[in-house]
Amino acid sequence: MARLIAKTPAEGLLPVEVAGVRLSEVDPGGLTSVAALGGADIGAALKAATGASLPGPGATTTGRGGARVVWFGVRHVLVMGPPVAALDGAAVTDQSDAWCTLRLDGAGARDVLARLTPLDLRPSSFAEGATARTLLGHMQASITRVEDDAYLILVFRSMAKTAVHEITEAMESRAARLRLT
């Protein structure tokens, strides 16, 4: 039987550091999509399964075992961390292999991201713990501000190389601008 070797989406491409901003790939542990079916209220079931409350639009919550629940769309959240078993009233799917999870951190990470996304990244509208589905260049992405100067960026696995290229280019453009001033 063939022995398959697991590769992370951005294997061999990262980490990259330019002018104090680092882009690295992180292993989220697991990614589970939880979508409420119809008008089902899944708050209690999610709380029982993960220890985290159901985040509203643009919010994240945390639960047991480092679980981070990220709002992912209309009546739809993504659980990063321990796998989630079936929940009543929800469509639960394992998407661990479907997304590339990147972390952009360091002073200036916000300036780099601002070159790629139309999102308002100012702290007043995108505080720590905030999340958004938005565009990164031409890619659909999920961006979460996990620390003051650190962002988690999820793109489709098939876009990993493009995402790394675009973010690296934005990091270099920012560095070039800094050299002028």
């Binding site: 639009p57 643009g58 769309g73 209309v74 139309p118 999102l119 308002d120 589905r133 938005t134 565009l135």
Partner: peptide, 11 residues
């Protein structure tokens, strides 16, 4: 209504 004011390129 979910995301707040967003740029036209997302739509």
């Amino acid at each position: 209504p979910c995301c707040g004011d967003r740029d036209i390129r997302e739509f």
